[in-house]
C-alpha cells in the first residue's frame, strides 16, 4: 500500500453498477514527509475519508470483490485507512 493525500472528488452520473453509491476520489501519492510524488490516482473510498486527509491506498486483484461482496468488481484502488499520525525515522 502507499500513502496519499485526498485531493479532489469525482462526480459522475453514468457508471458501472459496481460503482453505484461509491465515492470516487482523486488521490496524490506522497512521501511520509508530505511531499507529492508521481502521478495522481483514482481511488474508491469506503472508510469515510474526506478531502485533505492523508490516507493509505492500495489494491490488488480480488480485493474489491471481497470487500464489497460482489461477483464482478472492476475496481483496483481502494482507500483502506485514514491516517491519524505517522511515527517514523527515515534511513
Amino acid at each position: 500500500m502507499f500513502l496519499a493525500r485526498v485531493e479532489k472528488k469525482v462526480v459522475s452520473s453514468k457508471k458501472h453498477s459496481a460503482y453505484n453509491g461509491r465515492i470516487v476520489f482523486i488521490v496524490q501519492p506522497i512521501l511520509p514527509d508530505g511531499i507529492a510524488i508521481g502521478n495522481e490516482w483514482v481511488a474508491i473510498d469506503y472508510v469515510g475519508a474526506g478531502i485533505g486527509d492523508v490516507v493509505v491506498c492500495g489494491g490488488a486483484p480480488g480485493v474489491a470483490k471481497t470487500v464489497f461482496n460482489l461477483n464482478i468488481a472492476p475496481i483496483r484502488t481502494l482507500i483502506m485507512a485514514v491516517v491519524d499520525k505517522i511515527n517514523y525515522r527515515d534511513i
Binding site: V47, G48, V82, I86, Y88
Partner: peptide, 25 residues
C-alpha cells in the same frame, strides 16, 4: 525492506483492527 515507522489510523476497515500498519523503505 527496512521497517522505519508505524502508521496510526483509527478510521479503517474492521478486518484491519488489531493489525499493525508499518511504514517500510
Amino acid at each position: 525492506a527496512k521497517v522505519i515507522g508505524t502508521i496510526v489510523s483509527s478510521q479503517k476497515d474492521e478486518s484491519l483492527n488489531g493489525k499493525k500498519l508499518l511504514l517500510c523503505k
